Amino acid sequence: MAGFFSKLKQGLSKTRDQFVGKVEEILTGRRKIDDELYEELEEVLIRSDVGVNTSLELVERLRKEVKKRKLQEAEELREVLQELMADLLGTEEAMNFAEQGPSIFLVVGVNGVGKTTTIGKLAHYFRTDGKKVILAAGDTFRAAAIDQLEVWGQRAEVEVIKQKEGADPAAVAYDALQAAKSRGADLVIMDTAGRLHNKVNLMEELRKVKRVIEREVPGAPHEVLLVLDATTGQNALQQAKLFQEVAGVTGIVLTKLDGTAKGGVVLGIQGEINIPVKWIGVGEGMEDLRPFNPQDFAGALFDRSPEGVEEG
């Protein structure tokens, strides 16, 4: 996985420059640890889309650690801050799979966040891992979504179950589950509509799809994955809160980390919503979506070794 650490580090370069770079500016050349220093750190965290509550909590924990460790030099705070962030991000969360029969992953999120692309990359990841995967084109609201999923299905070399535009998503879910049972599939990944202008409709649609899944495969869905676009920063936090309410989200997929300086939103998600980030995307390629490792993320964020040279 050394190659992916390098990719992750490269992908986080904008966030590192914006966030860690600003932290370095505050700490470098300063000797005294005082209230003004803490206030400046709070401001940098908030501006980096970490979220107000999480930023305040991090700085409060930093204050406690400084007292506990009897630190006196401002530059000593860098390592402590990295430790606290890694701690906030928690441990790597494994995916939930069925003990027997097909596992069902429901993928939700607004249009434009990279939902269909994410499904294709997940299919590729699990097929490469030896699983038989089926995709369900449950976003019947947009014809383009069905076509796009078919293209990704071909790339990932997995079967796509679909109906025509405007069909009932619950019917697509039913067809996909029957296909999974008859073909001995290990995993069904279901797309869903990404419209949010009418929360009631979205909620009803998801409830109906979930009812079908629960009836056909007891204990399913095993994961409800919410896809968020890292470039939207605080908007991603708002989306997470809404989908948590309507869909019972079990994990987050954070895409487009390589195109943003707002990677601090990962900390905000963990600190304010308490839904684990399970996957991150740092590029366009099929291999650029990987399980989220909090320690690697914190390490890549703070790693100042030249690109292409990895520490440790």
Rank of each mutant, 00 (worst) to 15 (best):
T231P: 10
V227L: 05
S6N: 12
A136F: 08
L27E: 06
V44H: 04
G184P: 01
K210F: 05
F126P: 04
V209F: 01
R63E: 11
S305K: 08
K67D: 13
I146S: 10
L8G: 04
E24F: 13
F105L: 05
G112M: 03
S6R: 10
R183D: 10
V266C: 12
T232Q: 01
G271V: 13
G233D: 01
G259D: 10
I213T: 12
A86L: 07
T140R: 08
N235C: 11
Q154T: 12
T140W: 08
D229P: 04
K22S: 15
L12H: 13
K241C: 00
P276H: 02
E307P: 15
M203A: 11
V188W: 07
L225H: 05
V266W: 11
D147P: 02
I33Q: 11
V59W: 00
N198G: 11
K7W: 12
A180I: 12
G251Q: 15
F141W: 03
I213W: 10
G101P: 15
K22V: 11
G29N: 10
D191P: 00
V44Q: 07
P102A: 00
I189C: 00
V209W: 09
Q148L: 09
V20C: 15
G166D: 13
G299Y: 08
A173K: 05
G3K: 03
I104D: 08
K241A: 14
G251Y: 07
E79G: 04
L237W: 11
M85A: 00
G109A: 03
T231L: 02
A143M: 07
D17I: 15
R31F: 09
V59F: 00
E245G: 06
S305I: 04
A98C: 03
A230Q: 14
G312Q: 12
Q234I: 14
R69E: 11
D258W: 02
V188F: 08
Q100D: 13
V110S: 03
P169T: 15
L206W: 04
T91S: 14
L242C: 02
Q10I: 14
Q163D: 08
E205C: 09
I275V: 15
L149Q: 07
D129V: 06
Q82N: 07
I26F: 02
G114P: 05
G219D: 07
I275R: 04
D288K: 02
F4S: 11
A179Y: 10
R207A: 06
K256A: 06
A240P: 01
Q72H: 13
E310H: 00
L12R: 11
E43Y: 02
D147W: 00
G308R: 12
G90W: 02
N96P: 03
Q72S: 15
T116A: 11
S182F: 12
T260A: 11
G263Q: 04
A2C: 00
A136D: 09
F105W: 13
G259C: 10
G263V: 15
E310C: 00
A136E: 05
E99A: 15
D129P: 00
L56A: 01
I104W: 11
P276D: 01
L77H: 03
G299Q: 11
F243N: 06
L237P: 06
V158L: 10
E39T: 05
V158P: 02
I26V: 14
A94L: 11
